[in-house]
Write a protein that binds this DNA or RNA. Sequence first.
DNA 1: GTTACTTTGTGCGTAGCTTCACAAAGGTAC
DNA 2: GTACCTTTGTGAAGCTACGCACAAAGTAAC
Lengths: 243, 243
Amino acid sequence: MHRPPVPWSSGQVTRRPSQARDRGIPDATVARLPLYLRALNGLAERGISTVSSEDLAVAAGVNSAKLRKDLSHLGSYGTRGVGYDVQYLIYQISRELGLTQDWAVAIVGVGNLGRALANYGGFVSRGFRVAALFDADPAVVGERLVGMAVEHTDGLENVIENRGVSIVVIATPAAAAQQVADRVIAAGVTSILNFAPVVLNVPDGVDVRKVDLSTELQILAFHEQRKADRETGSSMMAEAMDA
Amino acid sequence: MHRPPVPWSSGQVTRRPSQARDRGIPDATVARLPLYLRALNGLAERGISTVSSEDLAVAAGVNSAKLRKDLSHLGSYGTRGVGYDVQYLIYQISRELGLTQDWAVAIVGVGNLGRALANYGGFVSRGFRVAALFDADPAVVGERLVGMAVEHTDGLENVIENRGVSIVVIATPAAAAQQVADRVIAAGVTSILNFAPVVLNVPDGVDVRKVDLSTELQILAFHEQRKADRETGSSMMAEAMDA
DNA sequence: GTTACTTTGTGCGTAGCTTCACAAAGGTAC
DNA sequence: GTACCTTTGTGAAGCTACGCACAAAGTAAC
């Protein structure tokens, strides 16, 4: 079953509705830019220097008209009759996404998930740098991970300020997530990636994106059930027609 | 900054566009049902037996009109002047999502992320059961995790069939993901939750949802950059007006 | 039974996203 | 320079989703 990417499904951003979009680039487009960037990097690795919207769209798994409209929001970077220069487009999308500068990321909660995140290579690859690891458990504090000692959450505010952390990843148990969010926001952080299964309450001006495993599974279960229902339904109809 | 949940951001589902929706329930609604379910469970734990759309909407972080419209797609389960019965609504949403039956889930790839997923309690809580763990690395095969031995991916097809696995979680490196997807689909699986940073190519009838850490970070970086730009812009304007 | 109050369910206007289809623009060959 | 080919960028139409605002429907009090 193929469906167009659905922007608000699992990774969600909340925003004051009045403030419609960012620099005129629709949210739906922004959400797809990372996808294009990854596809372009794949092409670049294979030594391809130019790509048509059609080919890039296939690589990214989207409709080519949508791709062209998305890219047109960044500017007119294609050449008619030819396509897009891969390297140039990589640069333009990176710049638009803010990946030409380094973002210091802190991970709060070094359980199984926090460890996985810290070790995730592609995550630190370009544009992002793990600048701090925090945990509330004294047994974990001091442990070294990706060349960095886990620090106690007591020092959260200080470290965030001193190391210029601008994005915080919350990988704590659900019960601790809101408190962590409150503290990092008070320390000046305005971008949070939340893995804890809770709805975070944050003031205007703070972006929260949520990644939620059980939500994803439940959505899959819904569709799976529907497929099963449909089959049962069809066979019942077949039987009815037999009778 | 608050914005309405954006369906296609990170957790994405692809579907054949022609087949518009499932049983008349819009995708956007389906994506929010797990959210409502979690909020309702929280209320139930606190002993609350009845809730108004307004209160539930606050708990779930959505607009109350949207909540009512979402619930109206399931049926007329509220009582005017009173609200919704918490337990009854939990049951109805669970049923709609297919959580009244148990789904056997297999996790492929027992690296850091796979371990985190296997250990994630809420994940297995209701409706889902980890039925198998696979890895291609002989050093990992045989290791016990959540009371279950990691098996070699050689046995993928057999195990999936024998244990009735219907949902597969792919937590392998990017390079292996497509191959794993091909094999489990050939074995009859039609629901995949993909954590590998690649666009999976799947036939019609197969649902893929994607969770992508770097995509989420990049979207946050975009907004973070915009906030920074805006501040610079304002101060520049202030200076210009001073001059 | 009647009145007043509360809360659901939904019609409707609006906004945003997607897709089609094509004109405009650049490249190539001669 | 001209004719032809390819591919972009976008106007316009259709579709989906959101949120207001209100009628319908239930409760509660007397």
